[in-house]
Write a protein that binds this DNA or RNA. Structure first.
Lengths: 113, 113
DNA sequence: CCGCATCCCATATGATACTG
DNA sequence: CAGTATCATATGGGATGCGG
């Protein structure tokens, strides 16, 4: 069984996963949220180049996919925090192998994650 | 050091890997070639829905990325075979974790890889 | 058989401005 | 602070037809 989420078309687990992380900034968002929960503005500053529209759009999709949790604090000024769900944490662990491959074979010892 | 390939913009290993597998059919091509080398027409039949243009385009990119090997047999009629390089095999192994995540958490016990 | 060339469109992303 | 609205653009991908 799976968490509530938008429909997945693929029959292959890998394709299904690619649907979920298919978005220019999604893997970066996962990485940013992996260590600690963040507010919207923090995320924006951690991802140089992302626009508010795209960031909000990606976060909504990731929430629908059940990998990100959005918590609203009813205060003035507004306060929203994003964090990974257990599903998101598991996804990050699965992505670690891919990140290691890229670092070792593509960046070739350059700095970076 | 890394194999000859097109320039990678990312500084992060994960983003770099996402560049390489960023293409609608690339993970499927990897999967198809994982077991055995294939001819162009075979690949096309194994990936229902892909067009010749896109398949050829993806294969050229993957060749430039050093994950796919293209061998031309100078015969009539033409004969070309595609196979994974050691780099491609390693990539597939890294993708296995992602595929398992998708199968377990997205497909939820449905059939599929 | 393999694949390129051309045209076209849907979608993802970006820039900018505005709001509760 | 945390978005939404609107407009503009780039890119990927699909349809079709031709060529070595």
């Amino acid at each position: 069984m799976r968490a509530a989420r938008r429909p997945i078309a693929s029959e292959c687990g890998l394709d299904a996963a690619m649907e979920v992380i298919g978005g220019k900034w999604k893997s970066s968002i996962l990485w940013a949220l992996n260590e600690r929960r963040c507010r919207f503005g923090e995320l924006r500053r951690m991802l140089p180049g992302v626009t508010e529209k795209v960031l909000a759009s990606h976060l909504r999709e990731m929430e629908a996919d059940g990998i990100v949790c959005r918590e609203v604090f009813d205060e003035v000024p507004p306060h929203v925090e994003y964090s990974l769900t257990p599903l998101g944490v598991a996804l990050n662990e699965a992505l670690a192998a891919l990140g290691a491959w890229g670092r070792d074979h593509l960046l070739g010892g350059r700095d970076g994650h």
